[in-house]
Every structure is written in C-alpha cells, then in structure tokens.
Design a protein around this nucleic acid. Structure first.
Length: 277
DNA sequence: CTATAGACCTGACGGC
DNA sequence: TGCCGTCAGGTCTATA
C-alpha cells in the first residue's frame, strides 16, 4: 500500500512530466474530492500552471500558479500516471478514473483509484504541513524528542508509530519492518520500552525508507501499488506479508496477528523468536 | 487529552 | 459455473 516511499516514488516520477506545464483542461468526478464541488475543482485547476511537485508524509501536492495547491493522496489503490494521448471525449474514461488533466505537452495526466480511499482536491491552505509529525528521512528527524513522547504513551508501539501526527510516512509495511529490525514485538506498550529500545526503533526507520525509495516502493504478492510507470516496486519486506515464511535472522516461522479488536483493526507480522512479547 | 472502535470502499479470493 | 462472505488498510470521526 502506498506509504512514504511509494508516495515519494510517484511524486518524483510525475514531477518532470507536469512541473512547468499549464493545465489546459481538467476532468474530475470523484466523491472523494476535498474541494466543495467537481465544478469548482475544474474551475480552479483549469488554466493554471503547475509550479512544483511536493510531498509531506504520504500526502502529495502540486502548487499552482494562482496560489492554490492540487492535492493527491493515493490512499490504498490510488495511482498517478501520464499517457501520451491528450484530449478525451465525454464518457471515455473507465469508472476508476477520478481525475484527468490535459497538459501543454499534449499528454494527459490521470488519477485512478478503484477503492476510492484516495483523495483528489484543490486547496489554498495546507493544514497537513503542521499537523504531521517529522519524517524519518529528514536529516533533522528528532529522535530524542520522539523517545520522550513515545515513552509517555500507553499505545501499542506499532499503533503509536502509525500515528501520522507523531511520525509522518509509515504505514503497515514499514511499521512492521521497523519493529522487526529493532526486534520489538508490535504489541508492546510504548511506555514499557526502554529509551534505548525506542532509540533503536526510531533509528531503523530512515534506512528502511531510503532503501524502499531506491527500490521504487513495495508491491506485495496481492499486487496493488504500481509506480507512475506502471511498474512494480522492488522493495521486499523482511517481515510484512510473510506469515509462514522463515525469519531471515533465525529461521523461526513468521506469525501474523491483529492489532486491536475493531473492524478496522490492522494486521501485524512478527518473528516470535526475534520479537518476543 | 488519550485510547479504542467504527465507517468508508470494492477487487480478489476461498468455500461450496 | 457462479454466488456470497470475508479480507485488505489510510484516515477521519465518534465515544468512553
């Protein structure tokens, strides 16, 4: 699923196609539009020059010449790509196309999202910039501050590091990977971990995310994420989605559990030997 | 304020 | 062959 490395891969791949281009025509139909209406979205994006391609956590956004920002969140199944074909006809797009932009280059830029957990919008304000926590790939990632914050939380550690307001960018895959490499059971309460354990957990995040960015993200066995060129990501998790496989450290069998009891509970994967409870 | 639960959504998959 | 229930999770909202 798209997390920080997948969002960054897509952002970087789309950037050269769209930055400097003026949007000649816009199409949108999604119910997951954050701006007030489809009509307003089209009105505020059409004719605007795209002046940047940025990302914060999993949120991608494109500053426009008029001071607005085109917002894209990939959610679970959102994809961005550019097609050589330019203009479209009414009714031409498949039901999964939620946005399209005709560019000066004659190409068109498409947002698809079968499960519609993603988001397309236009906004002048960017409240997520201040609401999100620091990013592990930032050179100034404040490990000591986060050790202090985490040591006061009673949440299970995996739930805590999935909180985007605390740390931005981790989703289910990379949260599991970080716990595994730090040899911490994902259900351990954050406030029961030592400062050394928390420090190690936090220190593992940057190399994992950087490795995943170099691999253009992670595509799992069941498919899902594709980069902007329609290719699979080549990052291979050591623990996520590998229930029943042998642990790379000790050859114990990897297990899977569920965080919490709610209907929206998240799975977690762990090695019972390397990550004892 | 903190922790937990529910809702949203639909393609893929397994059972019968 | 085809129907149907279950699973997947990023993020917002509700509740105790």
């Amino acid at each position: 699923m798209p997390e920080l490395p997948e969002a960054e891969t897509v952002r970087a791949q789309i950037e050269p196609h769209v930055v400097g281009q003026t949007i000649l025509d816009s199409f949108a139909k999604t119910a997951h539009l954050t701006s007030p209406s489809v009509e307003e979205f089209i009105e505020r994006t059409r004719g605007q020059k795209i002046i940047g391609a940025k990302r914060r956590g999993k949120q991608i956004y494109f500053p426009l010449g008029n001071g607005d920002n085109l917002l894209v969140h990939l959610g679970m199944t959102g994809r961005l790509h550019v097609e050589d074909q330019g203009e479209w006809k009414p009714g031409e797009f498949s039901k999964h196309v939620h946005g399209a932009f005709l560019l000066e280059s004659g190409k068109r830029w498409i947002f698809t999202d079968p499960r519609t957990f993603g988001e397309l919008g236009v906004s002048r304000e960017l409240p997520f910039l201040s609401k999100m926590g620091p990013e592990p790939i930032d050179p100034d990632f404040p490990i000591e501050l986060l050790v202090e914050k985490l040591s006061r939380k009673n949440l299970k550690i995996k739930a805590a590091i999935l909180d985007q307001s605390l740390i931005a960018g981790l989703g289910n895959i990379y949260a599991d990977e970080a716990c595994f490499r730090a040899r911490i059971h994902p259900e351990t309460r954050a406030n029961t971990l030592s400062p050394e354990q928390l420090r190690e957990l936090l220190s593992h995040m940057r190399p994992i995310l950087e490795e995943a960015i170099r691999a253009r993200g992670a595509t799992l066995k069941d498919g899902g994420y594709l980069d902007a060129n329609g290719q699979f990501g080549e990052f291979r998790p050591q623990i996520y989605g590998r229930k029943g496989d042998a642990c790379v450290n000790c050859e114990s069998v990897i297990e899977r559990g569920v965080l919490g009891a709610s209907k929206s509970a998240r799975s977690f994967h762990f090695c019972p030997s390397c990550q004892p409870k």
